[in-house]
């Protein structure tokens, strides 16, 4: 284990009944980074985060949080936003934030003062004295996030923080996460929405079926797939596919194919010489979504979704 890691785990295992929902997960989160845990529904993300925080105990493996093998002993330096949001509806917002800070060692007075400041900064200053039950779902979610950072934690763990938020609140949340990293905190969050991960994550891991399928930066992830070209001929006819790479497939008026190793120039010369001309050409960098789908696989995604739906129904 390296000392510059905020969170590390090796071979984490968790069984529910006979099923291994987390199956030997390794994770290494460097300090001061935004780290994403990506995966489809039912991949084991939440269970992994709960084991890292000490909410549930692993059946196997080791973990280290902020240099301590017992996560509970550093709970005052950790902030946590669970997937299932929960606040006391009868509490005023600023009291709710102060209460969450008090649970993590912040005195009530400072908690109330910081809570009011954080709400003001997040554009919720008008709701400081409102009761939680009067807030919209999105506002309540932001209040809960403010409660998880009011004690200025060294590690912030967010489980699906963007779910249920409208675009305006999603943007507020992204700014808050970036501000936490700029303050020096390490942010570890789970999501299955690739756009957020792509914008925010310094590093990420992709989990599927309880196992780690990828670990690295967003750029590393993209590099696992070649660039794609989208070519639209000026004079199309049936002989065109014979000149294109083997993986070429129709896409609207044009064709999409993997960029050849030797580059696109030679292919373009051939196409022009053959009289097809060029009506349009774009070179596309693979997205995180493409990487995610390739790693997880369509069938695995569907299977995970069906399984998660079944569990939720049970």
């Amino acid at each position: 284990m390296q000392s510059d890691l905020a969170v590390s785990a090796s071979g984490l295992i968790k069984r529910f009944g006979e099923r291994r929902v987390v199956d030997g997960v390794d994770i290494a989160v460097p300090q001061g980074m935004i780290y994403g845990v990506l995966g489809p529904n039912g991949a084991g993300k939440t269970t992994t985060l709960r084991m890292l925080l000490g909410i549930i105990e692993p059946d196997g493996g080791t973990r280290r949080v902020l240099g301590n093998e017992r996560p509970r002993e550093v709970s005052d330096q950790v902030g946590y936003l669970p997937e299932e949001r929960g606040l006391y509806p009868g509490m005023k917002t600023v009291q709710a934030i102060a209460f969450m800070g008090a649970l993590r060692g912040l005195d009530w007075k400072t908690g109330r003062k910081r809570g009011a400041e954080l709400m003001e900064a997040a554009g919720l200053g008008h709701a400081v004295d409102q009761k939680i039950r009067k807030l919209s779902k999105g506002m309540a979610q932001l209040v809960q996030l403010l409660g998880s950072i009011v004690h200025q934690p060294d590690l912030l763990v967010l489980d699906e923080p963007f779910s249920g938020l409208d675009p305006v609140n999603q943007e507020r949340l992204e700014k808050l996460i970036l501000a936490e990293r700029d303050r020096g905190a390490t942010v570890l969050f789970s999501t299955h929405v690739m756009a957020h991960a792509e914008r925010l994550c310094d590093r990420l891991t992709i989990i599927a079926g309880g196992k780690v399928r990828f670990e690295g930066t967003v750029a590393d992830a993209r590099a696992t797939l070649p660039f794609k070209a989208h070519y639209v001929p000026h004079f199309p006819d049936d002989g065109l596919p014979a000149l294109l790479p083997a993986d070429a497939a129709r896409d609207g008026d044009g064709w999409r194919f993997t960029l050849p190793d030797e580059g696109i120039e030679a292919l373009l010369v051939k196409l022009i010489d053959a009289g097809y001309g060029i009506s349009g050409l774009s070179i596309e960098r693979p997205s995180l979504h493409d990487v995610f789908v390739r790693i997880v696989g369509h069938k695995a995604l569907e299977a995970a979704d069906v399984e998660a739906l079944g569990e939720a129904a049970a």
Partner: peptide, 11 residues
């Protein structure tokens, strides 16, 4: 209120 996970994570 689903507050139990907040409490269980901290305390």
């Amino acid at each position: 209120n689903k507050v139990i996970e907040i409490l269980a994570a901290a305390v």
